[in-house]
Amino acid sequence: MTRLRGKALLLAAVFLAGCAPYAVLEPQGQSAGSIAGLLHLFMWVCMVIWVAVVAALAYAALKRPTPAAGSPLQSAAEFDGKANWIVGSFVALTVAILAVLTLSSYLAGKTIADITGTETVTIHVTGYQWWWDVEYEDTRPDRTIYTANELHVPVGEAVKIKLDAGDVIHSIWVPSLFGKRDLIPGQHNELTFIAEKPGVYRGQCAEFCGFQHAHMGFTIVAEPRPAFDEWRREQLAQAAIPAALEQQQGRDVFLSRGCGLCHTVRGTDAGGRVAPDLTHVASRQTLAAGTLRMTMTDLARWISDPQAIKPGTKMPKADLDERELDAVVAYVGSLK
């Protein structure tokens, strides 16, 4: 008996441990906070109602029929009155609960919507199979930043994201910061959010969009305003000029073997606009839309055979020999 109780406790502990680091339940922003509050309210209200209904059902099922009640189909006038009272009060209770839930849902939606229009940063995100194209808008066109799969935002300020899709429907979701919003081809959507604490938050495509939907992630880095401004200044700069000989050879391979047909490295001849901008690719934390960490080893794995890591990705396996491959990895890894 004691052993059984021990096992049950262990099982319960394991299940509860699974709940701890769940991003939806640990909101770090106003929008996610409203949604989490709504989630808790609905969960507790529905749980209490469910328990009450099951208890009433169990009582009705297990109750011994009293012989004095007579035929259940033949109702007495006094019982009719009692039933009216019971049913009436439960209808009133149901209406009241639904009204409270509807009102709280409306208030949460209003909190999320009220941030709109107060933004200090506007980011244009376009979803493609299977990566995120990111463009920081500015009133001066020469201060526009192009990057991919990583957004930096200032802490405590409202940030607007304009959403478009380049091929199929995607959906943007950062559970710690905001709820889902769809990216639809031909339809422009927007969302505004505030990150309240500095940190690195993982985002994910939340609408099945094909083969590598699960490998369509991104990161949001929330940092204080000075660090954000510094990052923005760094991103505006041209690509680093390769210093080492291997890196220079890598740049030559990059430009002569067609990498620039799809990718842009600002400051060089590579100007393709159909794949992620690589000008500062090594400054990002992840590679291939959150699939790999940005390390030299993973970079080499990715460039040598993208189809082995992310089958179906639009990045082809390049026909490069070992020497060319090492050089390209050294060059791309130097693009800080």
């Binding site: 002569s256 067609g258 047909l261 082809p316 390049a318 026909d319």
Partner: peptide
């Protein structure tokens, strides 16, 4: 000529 620029399979 796109030799060397576009991979063989593509």
């Amino acid at each position: 000529s796109f030799k060397g620029l576009v991979p063989e399979k593509e």
